[in-house]
Write a protein that binds this DNA or RNA. Structure first.
Lengths: 202, 202
DNA sequence: CCCCCGTTTCACCTTGCGGTGAATTCGGCA
DNA sequence: TGCCGAATTCACCGCAAGGTGAAACGGGGG
């Protein structure tokens, strides 16, 4: 029997879905606020759970962050398949891929969380750095036959990061309200240039 | 006479240069860490000063931030003069300007501070947003005669922000170690495209 | 039927933060 | 010379954060 005036504690009946709920709330919080801004307490509140339970499951805030942002954000072979195919449309394929990536939900939240947290959390910056090196640099440097492949891959990544940052964090109105197609049309030549132009200098 | 065992308090002799010292330390701290990460205490320590003095001068942490990041980061007419001149070299002028801007010191620290802080501090995001709209959108939308000038200006800004973020915060090795000229050579066509291509779609 | 073990909560500790108020020292002006 | 006001420090407050330890609960295997 439940004592009145005292909240129930101990195990709830039924299958435990709480862990997944916490992860969902964490992903949402880290995508909306910075690493420090998203507190364990706020995440626990959003998940309808005691803060101590979060620590119980994930050990620490850093552990929760790693679990919430866990790879893969994007199927590993995505970039590889993107590079194969008609070379003259390389830029447009990349542009369309990135624009969709920045809007479709599982990936968008994780990238945003990583970008937001990278500024204050070295571990987050390293996660994103590693991901870019492994998933973008890898395919690009091995499949492109051009000078300075790492620099090209880095510029591709930098344009994508800048796009997410400007739209989601700065809230540049021209980007938040832009339609998909004009955006792709303007971005396509950029990626095409990074991925195919012989680059006079160097 | 100085009582032993007790630190001196009260006014220091000589001309007071302390305020500027605090601002310098703040700029350095906000450029290196996020808004929350850079504490008043740490800034005061770096400036060799009591934390309360910082509050005394600037009222609050937000006031200190505003004072440290104060405009103008870049001469207001810079973009205007950049747009005039040989249209075929527009992209290269922008590329060179941004690459130098991201490396020369008064501007670099302030932009980095704003970018770092924008993720957690709405005021910082607004400052940077306003700056971009006023200094970049203004000249570009009035001087360019092309469809969707705001979107073009936003993409220019996004590539610059992405560049600073990828190099300074993520620390992408290909960017930190890149020479100036190849970088300019690869960036130039991007800006040229954003600022001149007729953009089939739209 | 009962007891073990994972789940969940509560109460609480420590730390570091931004900020306040008063005291102290000194430069400069009348 | 005397004193006002700016500069500077100290001691301290209140708060919210991350994290701890133990107790309460209840599902499921013996």
């Amino acid at each position: 029997m439940n004592l009145p005036g005292r909240a129930r504690s101990g195990r709830r009946p039924g299958q435990s879905e709480t862990r997944a709920q916490i992860l969902r709330a964490a992903r949402e919080a880290f995508g909306r606020e910075s690493y420090e801004g998203a507190t364990i307490r706020s995440i626990a509140l959003a998940a309808g759970v005691d803060p101590a339970l979060v620590i119980h499951f994930f050990g620490s805030k850093a552990g929760l962050f790693s679990a919430a942002m866990e790879l893969p954000y994007v199927p590993a072979e995505a970039f590889t398949t993107l590079i194969r195919g008609e070379p003259s449309e390389l830029g447009e394929r990349f542009a369309r891929f990135f624009v969709e990536l920045s809007q479709s939900e599982p990936a968008r939240g994780r990238f945003l969380g990583l970008i937001r947290s990278a500024v204050s959390e070295a571990a987050a910056a390293a996660m994103l750095n590693d991901y870019i090196v492994a998933e973008v640099f890898g395919p690009l440097t091995s499949l492109l036959r051009l000078p300075m492949p790492e620099l090209r891959a880095a510029l591709v990544a930098s344009q994508f990061v800048g796009l997410m940052f400007s739209r989601e964090i700065l809230g540049l109105e021209a980007l938040t309200s832009a339609d998909c197609e004009p955006l792709v049309a303007l971005l396509a030549p950029t990626f095409q240039g990074y991925l195919s132009s012989p680059s006079a200098t160097g």
